[in-house]
Simulated scan of single mutants.
Amino acid sequence: MKKLLFPLAIVLFFGFTKDPEIQIDSKDKEWIMKHLTESREHMKQVLDGLSDEQLDYKPDPTSWSIAENVEHLALTEKMFVEMLHKSIADGPKPELKDSLVFKDDQIMPMIADRSQKVKTAEPFEPSGQFGSTEETLGALLAIRQELMEYIETTEDDLRNRYAKLPFGTVDAAQFIVFIAGHMERHVLQMEEVMEDEDFPQM
């Protein structure tokens, strides 16, 4: 009887014990942090020293000002981070691996490409809800800092979590680089405003 119980115990132990989850690769962390850092620093560089008149300038009535781009980024980045945390909480979904639509090196140039214009959804239209541009920028930078601290400390397997975007499925690592690319896209839009011939001078 004892001889039968021991093998049974082994079967039960291994049958109900899950393999430890694979942790995020250090190279993925470096890749993600590079884009989060570079896009943030590019934005700060562009905004540095701009007057209220420059921040609020619009090349035409249908264009966004630099300040409105900052607010749009604050609104969308908050939503993106919430989406990311939901994808992490939903747990691994290896069955979605074959659904990926982009390779890693395609993510950043695809979203930052300004040749394709996209109209945002109404909830992400700028409306001045954060207050001043300084307050709006503070909110945006706080969201970005929270995201970067998560990446620096997490051991979550971001390659096995997924998010569904309008253009298809991405894994969580790609999604975070998408967030960085979205910021870069709007920083480029800010630079386009600054290049307008009637942009206020210092």
Rank of each mutant, 00 (worst) to 15 (best):
M202E: 14
K3Y: 11
Q189L: 08
K103C: 13
L8C: 06
L100G: 06
A112V: 01
H35A: 11
R185V: 00
A163I: 14
K164D: 05
T37K: 15
Q106D: 10
L55R: 10
T62S: 11
H42R: 15
E95T: 08
E71C: 06
F102P: 11
A74I: 05
A163Q: 10
I88T: 11
M43V: 07
R161K: 12
L100R: 07
Q54K: 08
E41Q: 06
L50Q: 01
Q54V: 07
A139K: 13
T62Y: 01
M83K: 15
A121V: 07
L100M: 06
E195A: 15
P61N: 07
N160T: 06
R144K: 12
M110L: 14
E41S: 11
E125Q: 13
F80R: 13
E21S: 11
F102K: 15
S99Q: 11
E135K: 15
M190Y: 00
Q129L: 13
S63N: 01
V118D: 10
L73C: 09
Y57K: 12
D48G: 13
M202F: 13
D105E: 14
S99G: 11
S132A: 01
S65N: 07
I143P: 01
R40H: 09
Q116S: 07
D60Y: 05
K2E: 02
M110A: 15
R114L: 05
S39F: 02
D48N: 15
V170P: 03
L188S: 04
E184P: 14
T133I: 08
I107M: 01
L141A: 05
